[in-house]
Nucleic acid binder design. Structure first.
Lengths: 155, 155
DNA sequence: CTAAGATGGACTAGTTCGGTCGGATATCCT
DNA sequence: AGGATATCCGACCGAACTAGTCCATCTTAG
């Protein structure tokens, strides 16, 4: 169905939030999770992958959190997807990996690879900064220092 | 990972084969399955979906088989994918379906939908005819046992 | 009538995905 | 120094989806 995974959705949501609130300094995983109703542990793992992919920088400790590792304009949607879900491929096979039963008889490889390259180009053409520009206000920004923990009491 | 399903791979393989051998008349599912080493029952299902999507026409009976329902140049890769895997979407939500926990807070919908449109445009830009043109010969015809229709001029 | 072929539904095994848990480690504040 | 807060990381589980299989029915040429 060519759908991108939920983790990628979460990653894009988070990265966009960080881009829109870059001035506020580090944002904790918990705040992000509560803002967007995402399971905190799951989001945490996604954020960690983004850190490993050098898209975010994490700060541990009591006022820790995440922040963009570089300018939002220098970070594309393709970067985010690849950091979370690994190299994006349309076909099972690639130049490196020929593990496909039909590889020897396959005659649609080349055109599909070309299509893949064009899709990647499309994803690379949209920067995180453009995502952040979309809507007037990202979300009502929480006054700094306030801890919105009590919003999440849902039996 | 943005990967397209195996069924789609099979569909593209089959459709390309039919485009390259359009002169031979109907090709049976069994022949296609043997040519490309695809589980016959599975390929049969894929072909049925293509028929339901008006991309192929089937002929039942003892000399039956499948053939393109229209010119290969008027059939895009996007058509094939959608016939097999349903409407292709990048996000969980769409204009019709808002079933996503983050829908109300989501702020990346519009840009992602634009990306989706561009991906679909990319897929629609490649026709099956172009796939068929790629390689010099589609495949060596079956060595023995199966007789294509043209040879059956019996005196 | 019979063989070859399409059609369609139900079913199973395997894998992936979303989500959870527990603990380790780093940092700040008092 | 010590505790509180937060990131980090690996293992785990259940549900959903995917690929593949089986079988029963219908259609048509010979």
């Amino acid at each position: 169905m060519l759908r991108l995974s939920k983790k990628t959705d979460y990653a894009l949501l988070a990265v966009r939030h960080l881009a829109a609130n870059a001035d506020r300094g580090a944002v904790s995983a918990r705040e992000l999770a509560e803002t967007y109703d995402i399971p905190p542990e799951l989001l945490a793992k996604v954020l960690q992958k983004l850190v490993r992919g050098r898209l975010l920088e994490s700060q541990q400790g009591i006022r820790g959190g995440y922040a963009l590792a570089r300018a939002a304009s220098a970070m594309s949607v393709a970067d985010v997807i690849q950091a979370v879900d690994g190299p994006l491929m349309v076909t099972a096979c690639s130049e490196e990996d020929h593990s496909c039963d039909q590889y020897s008889k396959c005659n649609i490889r080349d055109p599909l690879w070309r299509i893949k390259d064009r899709i990647i180009a499309t994803l690379a053409a949209t920067s995180v900064a453009e995502l952040a520009m979309e809507m007037p206000a990202p979300l009502p920004p929480l006054p700094s220092g306030v801890m919105p923990m009590q919003m999440v009491k849902r039996p």
